[in-house]
């Protein structure tokens, strides 16, 4: 890291620190009632208390599980369907209009449908999260497969590569930047829907913790849950970015 990069990093930490300081100030001056707004000190204490009693860790694991299973299911199905649709011009022409109708559908609207069909179960949560998270992945995969350089297919033909080899060695690596970008986007969607499902279906997780804390006016616990959710989104997104950088090292090689 060079000097300029270090300075920018220091500046960004200072900004974040001043937000926390402002929050502390507002809480200490009682500009907002402490019933609704705890200071960062109380929120932090609640966080530590939650983890030492083991309650919060269990909720965190619950949310991470919902998110991971839903996201993985969405990734597998999204890449498979996207590859199928994207690699065929005919399929794209047939299926694209239906996708355009389904894609902007708010996922929250299908939650009642999912609850009616699957009940207040983990299966319902998995279905809803996967359904919401599949779109960015599938659409990115379709785009990635449709945008493969046609010349590369001719190279593959002249080398008489098998269909499986063409998908594995030409189409998939060519579409990988798009696919990974889609997977990073859908990670956020998976987190949001995990919380929504936990709140609506009372499933074990941070969503439920946040809801119950709010109902009991335990604002410090509520904020501890919110902070933990923010951290979850941040850390998972960074993890995926790191994998992305690793897999796409060839893109930055020339620059």
């Amino acid at each position: 890291m060079n000097r300029a990069a270090i300075l920018w990093r220091v500046a960004s930490i200072l900004v974040a620190g001043s937000f926390v300081a402002a929050w502390q100030l507002i809480a200490d001056l009682r500009l907002v009632s402490p019933v609704f707004l705890p200071g960062p000190d109380r929120a932090w204490a609640a966080l530590v208390r939650g983890f030492s009693s083991g309650d919060l860790a269990g909720k965190l694991i619950g949310t991470l599980e919902h998110m991971a299973y839903g996201w993985l299911a969405a990734s597998i199905a999204g890449i498979a369907l996207g590859a199928l649709i994207g690699s065929s011009k005919v399929m794209r022409a047939y299926v694209a209009p239906s996708l355009e109708f389904l894609r902007p559908l708010p996922v929250s609207a299908i939650i009642p449908v999912a609850i009616a069909m699957l009940g207040l179960t983990q299966g319902m949560a998995l279905f809803v999260i996967a359904f919401g998270a599949i779109w960015p992945i599938m659409l990115a995969t379709i785009h990635g497969f449709a945008a493969v350089e046609p010349r590369l297919y001719e190279v593959a033909r002249s080398l008489q590569m098998s269909r499986a080899a063409i998908i594995g060695k030409i189409a998939l690596p060519s579409a990988l930047p798009d696919i990974l970008a889609g997977m990073r986007l859908s990670l956020t969607v998976a987190l949001i829907l995990s919380v929504v499902c936990e709140i609506l279906a009372g499933l074990d997780g941070l969503g439920q913790w946040v809801l119950l804390s709010a109902r009991a006016f335990r604002s410090a616990d509520l904020f501890a849950g919110v902070i933990l959710l923010g951290a979850t989104g941040y850390v998972t997104s960074i993890a995926v970015s790191l994998v992305e950088q690793r897999l796409l090292a060839w893109q930055t090689a020339a620059r």
Binding site: R151, L152, V155, K169, P173, W250, Q251
Partner: peptide, 15 residues
């Protein structure tokens, strides 16, 4: 029979 294309930039796998 091998084919050498004009647009080498497109015929090579960048990854």
């Amino acid at each position: 029979v091998a084919i050498v294309f004009q647009d080498y930039g497109k015929a090579l796998l960048p990854w």
